[in-house]
């Protein structure tokens, strides 16, 4: 399972396609780098919500 920002979604999909994989992808807003703790909290929450969806299948 991959957590990627929306900006990098095409990269993940292109790489997965070349490897004949169907990635489980959790997309969060871009960017992640350079955020302070408060800003990063939103990304963590989004990633966790995405993970819960994946866990439910």
């Amino acid at each position: 399972m991959v957590i990627a920002t929306e900006t990098f979604r095409p990269l993940v999909l292109a790489q997965a396609k070349a490897r004949k994989l169907e990635p489980h992808l959790i997309v969060v807003k871009h960017p992640v780098g350079g955020l302070n703790a408060e800003e990063l909290k939103e990304r963590i929450d989004a990633a966790f919500e995405g993970l819960k969806v994946e866990m439910k299948g």
């Binding site: 900006t7 990098f8 095409p10 990269l11 292109a14 790489q15």
Partner: peptide, 10 residues
């Protein structure tokens, strides 16, 4: 190689 700008080439 497939290093397409804005897709693979980031």
């Amino acid at each position: 190689g497939g290093g397409k700008p804005a897709v693979m080439d980031r």
